[in-house]
Design a protein around this nucleic acid. Structure first.
Lengths: 217, 217
DNA sequence: GTCTATAGTTCGATAGAC
DNA sequence: GTCTATCGAACTATAGAC
């Protein structure tokens, strides 16, 4: 959580940059909503600035360019997502599946971020999109990490030896993303958690050596 | 394939609007690529016009507003997609699954349209987006039709009686959409057809009364 | 059917006052 | 750290000539 420029103030009660940091956070939060609604290209810095009560010039003091703002938003939100839920080691694949359900439940609690990811992932198919490299790398990483979790399950004997871990990882991510697309368009009609549970339940039945449905926590 | 305004000219060799129709088609094709790259809001009519060799004013003769162009693009491409692949009755669920694989293979052959759908679906989570109603209705329809195909399979005895047709339909659409997102970002790393085949194969094994993998065509 | 011209906005980014 | 002012550019849509 670094600060702008070369600030050297130290944190503390009424620390010297506590105010600036809070403004930064408010900008990031507003930016999420705007990227969600407009995508990157059509998002207006002026509108974001107005929302947090400053001018466009004032906003550019915190983020030098529109693209820098995008990068900050993506990095800040990914840190609290995939890293927290995906990367951590799990004692079992079953537990890891439950973590994915937790993540999905969490996403349903913050429509802004979920909608933003839908909008930006879709846009960033264009190789010239400023987030293209970010999302390409993100999926590569997520497939590797999810695949690794499954592979450990194979090695521990929890999953069958003929499991195609990479393919299953990709498929799992696809289901989660696809459910998010449908949920954003009709939140009342789609229960993401229930749907994903339905999926991992059958998946566990197919892949586990026990051949049983996903055990509860 | 109706024409602009209230044109009443009849088609024929050198028909009165054959030229205009071809221009219209070229505009629509170009628009697909631009909506794919920029989404709706950030797409520029001037750039589309330049691509087909006319001016922005000339383009607006064929489509009175940007939004009218979007609607035309969506309606034209949906007609040749879901309707052709999804709606038709199938003699069996197995055959219907093979049709979905055909559709996926078809989508892999036209990255422009596939990317456009990714970009617009993501953007249209915003209720104010000009395509929001279109996509909300589209998923409602597709879930109904896909669910209907499965339900006929239950009634014919091909699928188990306890199949949750609506949930399976939603899940199937989610997998297809999610795979498209990953494929657009890394076409060389993701084989959509193979991945979907992997999915429907297991799905058929789980849902069919025979309990066997998807039979080949 | 396509052009030019233009009205009326809005945009990202820079520069400098305070 | 925020503001004002401003530049240069792009945008949608309209109006009217040909």
């Amino acid at each position: 959580m670094d600060v702008k420029g070369g600030a050297t103030g130290r944190r503390g009660p009424r620390g010297s940059y506590a105010v600036g940091d809070e403004r930064r956070t408010r900008i990031l939060d507003a930016a999420v909503e705007h990227f969600a609604q407009w995508g990157f290209h059509a998002t207006s810095l002026t509108r974001i600035a107005k929302e947090v009560g400053i001018t466009q010039g004032g906003l550019l003091h915190h983020f030098r360019t529109k693209e820098a703002l995008l990068v900050s938003v993506l990095e800040a939100s990914d840190e609290n997502d995939a890293v927290r839920f995906f990367t951590e080691e799990c004692e079992s694949v079953a537990e890891w599946f439950h973590r994915l359900l937790d993540l999905t439940a969490h996403n349903a609690q913050r429509p802004g971020r979920t909608r933003m990811f839908n909008a930006l992932v879709g846009e960033s198919g264009d190789p010239d999109h400023p987030a293209h490299a970010f999302f390409a790398r993100r999926y590569r990483t997520l497939v590797e990490e999810a695949g690794g979790s499954l592979r450990r399950g194979v090695e521990s004997g929890e999953l069958r030896g003929d499991t195609d871990c990479t393919a299953e990882a990709r498929q799992l991510l696809a289901v989660m993303d696809g459910l998010q697309l449908q949920w954003v368009l009709a939140p009342a009609s789609v229960d993401m958690v229930e749907q994903l549970h339905h999926y991992v339940d059958r998946l566990y039945r197919a892949l586990s050596t026990a051949g049983r449905a996903l055990p509860p926590r």
